[in-house]
Design a protein around this nucleic acid. Structure first.
Length: 604
DNA sequence: GCTCCTTTGAAGTTT
DNA sequence: AAACTTCAAAGGAGC
């Protein structure tokens, strides 16, 4: 299991990323006056993952012992753990140390070693409550549980104070764990707002099995993938224990919250969403990354056919079950190996925390900024990601962890290496890793490449660096306009670029965001300022489109302004402002630093 | 139709 | 162990 030792993946990426995160943390200090932000944010972030990672191991002492002691917050974690264990002992008579509760995978407790607990939304007690059997502690721990559920599944508009809901919740209980999760409602989701953050709900609907799996689920071979699927070890959470073909009889983990008639016990309102925005992600798109054909037909009542989204067939979109069966008996036909591989489903990697976040927020950014170019959107999302609070990030880390867990359960033999198309370092080397315009952009000999040569790649326009159409070349022979900022920040803008000056939105851009390292490859274009035609693009704050160079959006101070693709006429006078004015532009215009969030949650 | 862009994170590989 | 590489999502754009 990765990230158990706090190293490697626990480091959460490269140092630059950590630096960025730290920058964001510093920003958070400014904004939220959170004293806990003084801690080493790298540790904090790492702990976020640790928390997620240790959730599944909460029942495994050996795993916990193997884990190296945390570098910081030891006392707190120890205390928290002690209190957790004590609470568990009090409430379930030592169940906490015993075999994992059948429903554990769903009602699991984030590791108390998490960093954000001290000032976070969840108290150790609350998490303890949700770790114990519901039938024992639902009543007493209702409120913390609701808090936890709200964090985990914001979709649920859990109103802890609603006595009626509480009563309904109690009624939903049943003596046996299997009944606790009795669920005939496939997915708890808002009819109009499908929370894109809940692939786990999809999974859970299909795979969550708080109770003992049916005997037929002990299949050791995935009928589709052919990957051996060993039975679940007793110590492994059955969180995502089932193959897509077994999803039919798996009750929803939230079933105990969902009445039989499809009416949620707790009203699911838009208010229950952390991000009550209309999302383009649909159930099929966001809730099921697995195509239907990957879900073997089952005789169960489950007819939704929601597949696991991680499986795609590269060649045939709707691979019939017959073909799957054929692949199972390929030994008979002995088709060519090529054909076999052709039919072999492509099991995608589980989404990491950021990917989950992007999946959720993309639609929002697109809607707010009218941007469609993913590259630009991803930049915005990347900054927003850093702007997220630890609690919010932890939510995604937790989801990502569960994604991985589910993925690992579904495809034990799968490895990320399987998706290495050409093998490591052999194919599809990302341009990012290359030196810009290394040798692969010979199609524009007269553009920046030819103009400046490889030795002066920093003088290239952004598109040229990305092997795209040279905007300077397009604008006219010798007319080198300043390329739009690759990320809407000053990083990719020339120091004297008037773009930032001309944009009122950029005035409100937080400095930390402006100075945040966003790209490893994009550098300020020192040549861009040399020639600034009057039609230079104005990149506005927040939502900027760099590569398209035409779509400029403004999401200033959280307020959505004109985000339609526009080309603003930059004031030529502004172009002559001194560099110092630009660097301290926010002070020039008297705009106070704004929160990192580029877009307001609400237009109120 | 393929690849790139662009982000972060996970995981694999190489040094 | 550190550095490096690939892939995951997304959709426009270039070739």
């Amino acid at each position: 299991m990765p990230q158990l030792n706090g190293g490697g993946g626990d480091d959460l990426g490269a140092n630059d990323e950590l630096i960025s995160f730290k920058d964001e943390g510093e920003q958070e200090e400014k904004i939220s006056e959170n004293s806990s932000a003084e801690r080493d944010l790298a540790d904090v972030k790492s702990s976020l993952v640790n928390e997620s990672e240790t959730n599944q191991n909460s029942s495994s002492d050996s795993e916990a012992e193997r884990r190296p002691p945390p570098r910081t917050e030891t006392s707190f974690r120890e205390k928290a753990r002690e209190s957790l264990e004590e609470a568990a002992k009090r409430q379930d008579g030592g169940l906490f140390k015993g075999p994992p509760y059948p429903g554990y995978p769903f009602i699991m407790i984030p590791d108390l070693s998490g960093p954000y607990l001290p000032n976070g939304s969840l108290s150790p007690t609350a998490r303890t409550c949700v770790n114990v059997p519901l039938d024992l502690h639902l009543t007493s721990c209702c409120s913390p549980l609701m808090q936890y559920l709200q964090m985990k599944w914001p979709l649920l508009d859990v109103q802890t104070g609603n006595l009626q809901s509480r009563q309904a919740l109690k009624d939903a209980r049943s003596p046996s764990p299997a009944h606790i999760v009795s669920n005939k409602v496939p997915v708890v989701q808002h009819p109009h707002h499908v929370h894109p953050l809940t692939p786990l709900i999809t999974y859970s609907n299909e795979h969550f099995t708080p109770g003992n799996p049916p005997p037929h689920l002990q299949a050791d071979i995935d009928p589709k993938t052919g990957i051996p699927r060993p039975p679940h070890p007793p110590d492994i959470s059955p969180y995502y224990p089932l193959s897509p073909g077994t999803v039919g009889q798996i009750p929803h983990p939230l079933g105990w919250l969902v009445p039989q008639q499809g009416q949620p016990v707790y009203p699911i309102t838009t208010g229950g969403f952390r991000h009550p925005y209309p999302t383009a992600l649909t159930v099929n798109a966001s809730m099921s990354r697995f195509p239907p054909h990957m879900v073997p037909p089952h005789h169960s009542l489950h007819t939704t056919g929601i597949p696991h989204p991680a499986i795609v067939t590269p060649t045939v979109k709707q691979e019939s079950s017959q073909s799957d069966m054929g692949s199972l008996h390929s030994s008979k036909h002995q088709d060519s190996k090529k054909e076999e591989e052709k039919k072999k489903p492509h099991i995608k990697k589980p989404l990491n925390a950021f990917m989950l976040y992007m999946k959720e927020m993309r639609a929002k950014v697109v809607a707010e900024c009218t941007l469609k170019e993913s590259a630009a959107i991803n930049q915005i999302l990347g900054r927003r990601w850093h702007a997220l609070s630890r609690e919010e990030q932890a939510k995604y880390y937790e989801l990502a962890r569960k994604e991985r867990q589910l993925h690992m359960q579904l495809y034990p033999g799968w490895s990320a290496r399987d998706n290495y198309v050409g093998g490591y370092g052999k194919k599809k080397k990302r341009k990012r890793d290359k030196q810009p315009g290394e040798t692969n952009d010979l199609s524009a000999p007269k553009k920046c490449r030819a103009r400046f040569g490889l030795d002066q790649q920093n003088n290239w326009c952004g598109p040229c660096r990305r092997k795209k159409k040279c905007i300077r070349y397009i604008q006219g022979e010798g007319s080198c306009i300043s390329p739009p900022s690759s990320d809407g920040s000053l990083l990719d803008s020339p120091p004297l670029s008037p773009n930032m000056l001309a944009s009122p939105a950029s005035d409100s851009k937080p400095q930390t965001e402006q100075t945040q390292p966003l790209s490893l490859t994009l550098k300020p274009d020192p040549m861009a300022h040399l020639s600034m035609p009057s039609s230079s693009l104005v990149l506005t704050e927040g939502c900027t489109s760099k590569s398209s160079a035409l779509s400029t959006s403004t999401c200033q101070n959280g307020v959505l302004h004109h985000c339609q693709p526009t080309i603003s006429q930059s004031s030529s006078s502004l172009a002559h402002l001194p560099t110092s004015s630009l660097h301290s532009h926010s002070s020039v215009v008297g705009v106070q630093p704004q929160p990192l969030s580029l877009v307001t949650k609400s237009l109120d």
